[in-house]
Design a protein around this nucleic acid. Structure first.
Lengths: 197, 197
DNA sequence: GTCTATACAAAGATAGAC
DNA sequence: GTCTATCTTTGTATAGAC
C-alpha cells in the first residue's frame, strides 16, 4: 500500500502552505488545485467553497500549534519558564512547518474584512487559546486578580514578535527579544504581587 | 471657487480609506472609482496601475503619520515622554483618520507577497522611520551602544499594539498596555546603563 | 484631464461522465 | 470520489472621443 495522502489531505496541505507563504486572496483556487494535484470538483465536493477549505486548513494548523505549545510547556522545568514557553513553541512551530511570511491566522484576519461565521470563529480561536492558556499559566505565578492583565500583556508581546517577522526581522531574533521583554513584564508583575502586604 | 478636491486627491482619499477599512486585494478598482466618483481612464492616467495608486496613497499617509508623531514629540515635556510619545501619536493618528482595521502598512505588506519596487520601498519606509526616530530619542536616555536595541524593542511593542487591534482589542486599551510595557522596558534599559560602573 | 464603452484575462464555482 | 470541460461573474486595464 503505502498510498500517498488522500486528495482531501493534499488539499489541506496545499491550502495551508499557500496561505502561509503568500496569503489567501492572492492565491487563486487554481494554484491550490495544481499544488494538490486535484481537480476543482473534488475541492468543492469536500469543502463547498474556497473559504471552507481555508477554514479547515486553519483549524488543523491551530490544533498542531496547540500540541507544539503544550509540549513546550511540559518540557519547561519551572512555572516561569512554562509561561515563557510560548516563545519556544513559536520558534519550534515555525521551524517545523512550511515557511510562512508571518502568522497565518493574523494574515487571514487582516485580508478578510467580512469572514463567514466559521472562519471568524476559527480566527478568534487562536486569540482565545493564547489568552486562556497564558492566563492559566500566569495564575501560578501572580495574584489571580492580576493574571488576566499579565496574560493580555504577554499576548501583546507575542503578537509584536509576529509583527516584527512581517517587518523583516529574523524569527529567532524577534523571538529572543520578545522573550526578554516578556521576562521583564513577568518579573514586574510577580514582584508587585509578592511585595504587596 | 471653493472647488472640491481634484480627481487625483479624491482617488488618493478613496484608495487610502478602502485600503484601511477592508484591505487592498479585496477592494476592486471599481470600488475605488465609485467612491472617488472618477472614471477608470483618469485613475490609470494618473497612477498607471492599481498598485501605483496604492503606493502614492501610502506615501501620503506615511507623511501625515510622521507629522502627527513629530507634533506629539514636541508636546512631550521630558525625554522619556518624548520616547513614549509614539503611543500618543498612534492614538491621535487613528482617531483623526478614517477608521482602519489595523495598520495599513502592515496590512498591505501582509497581503502583498511580491510588491513592486516602489511599493516595497514605501512599506519599508514605515519600519525605517519607526526604528530611526526611536533610536534617536533613545540615545538621549541610554548609552549610545544600547539605543538601537531599545529602539527595536519599542518597535516590537508598538507593533504588538497594532496586532492587538487586529485581534479585536480596543485601540486605547491596547495603546495603554503597550505604553506600560514600553515604560518598563525603558526603565530597565536606563537603569542598567546608569547603574553600570 | 476626463469621460463612455469595451477589450481581455482570471476568478470562483458547477455539470455531467466515469 | 474523482475527473474533464465549461459557465458566469468579476477583475484590471485600454481605446478613442470630447
Amino acid at each position: 500500500m503505502t498510498s500517498q495522502p488522500t486528495a482531501r489531505d493534499r488539499l489541506l496541505d496545499a491550502a495551508e502552505d499557500l496561505a502561509a507563504m503568500q496569503g489567501v486572496s492572492v492565491t487563486p483556487v487554481d494554484a491550490i488545485l495544481e499544488r494538490a494535484r486535484v481537480s476543482p470538483a473534488t475541492l468543492y465536493a469536500h469543502f463547498g467553497t474556497k473559504e471552507g477549505l481555508i477554514t479547515q486548513a486553519l483549524r488543523r494548523r491551530l490544533a498542531r500549534w496547540d500540541t507544539t505549545w503544550q509540549e513546550c510547556i511540559e518540557e519547561a522545568p519551572t512555572p516561569e519558564e512554562k509561561l515563557l514557553a510560548v516563545f519556544t513553541a513559536l520558534s519550534r512551530h515555525r521551524h517545523a512547518l512550511t515557511p510562512s511570511r508571518w502568522c497565518v491566522f493574523l494574515g487571514v484576519a487582516a485580508e478578510t474584512p467580512h469572514p463567514g461565521r466559521d472562519l471568524e470563529d476559527t480566527l478568534a480561536a487562536d486569540t482565545r487559546l493564547l489568552l486562556h492558556r497564558l492566563e492559566e499559566l500566569a495564575a501560578t505565578l501572580v495574584d489571580t486578580q492580576q493574571a488576566p492583565l499579565l496574560a493580555r500583556r504577554l499576548v501583546l508581546i507575542y503578537t509584536g514578535v509576529l509583527g516584527m517577522i512581517l517587518r523583516g526581522t529574523d524569527v529567532d531574533t524577534a523571538t529572543a527579544e520578545g522573550r526578554h521583554i516578556a521576562g521583564m513584564t513577568l518579573h514586574a508583575a510577580a514582584g508587585s504581587t509578592s511585595s504587596a502586604p
